[in-house]
Amino acid sequence: METSITATCAIRGRQIFLNGTLLFEAPEDTAADLSDFLIAGYRHFGVSYPKFFKMDVLSKLAFLTAELLLPKAGLQDRLRPADIGVVLTNRSSSLLTDVVHQQSIAEPASHFPSPAVFVYTLPNIAIGEISIRHQLTGENSLFVTESFEPAMLVPYVSQLLAEKSCQACLCGWLEAGLTGHEAFFYLVENHASPAPTPRPHRVPDVELLYSQPHYS
């Protein structure tokens, strides 16, 4: 069965792109800190979800990317929540939050680990946050790879769709590490897509969309 990519959203540096169009660019002074930049994006798009502020940066990055992509794609109007999967890949796992937790337990004399920090020391919590927000209850997994690897991701997601484990899948790259951050999410759908310009779900197409933020 043909599967197609029906939408993309990318957060790179201090820019946010939806379907290949630049939607938001934070002023340089708010973009030095990743959390500040993501909060600026949250405010710019008028999102209202107080739990956003409790999330670690990896989950904030995932949440904002999904928040821009999913409602616009109108997926929930067409599919049951159980039929939407989430498969994300990342390099640094939850390293930034691991460091915060480690600092809180390093000295026995000032041992105050925080439950609200510890819970984010797993990379798949970001998938949990997206799932809660959009009520996605389907297949979900988090793979760790050196870099964004469509050659690994595309066949796996194609198989998920082929065996009908899901009808659509939110896929992509979600990285927040010591050397920077980047999110590139795309939607893959099984059925004939209502998107104006669906693209085939193949490795070269995913590579192209990933390498050219301004593709539209």
Binding site: P50, F112, P113, S114, P115, A116, V119
Partner: peptide, 17 residues
């Protein structure tokens, strides 16, 4: 305030800290 179970645990950290 609409706090949840993790917030409850955080309150115990505030009490201890």
């Amino acid at each position: 305030l609409g706090l949840d179970s993790i917030d409850a645990l955080e309150l115990t950290v505030i009490l201890s800290k």
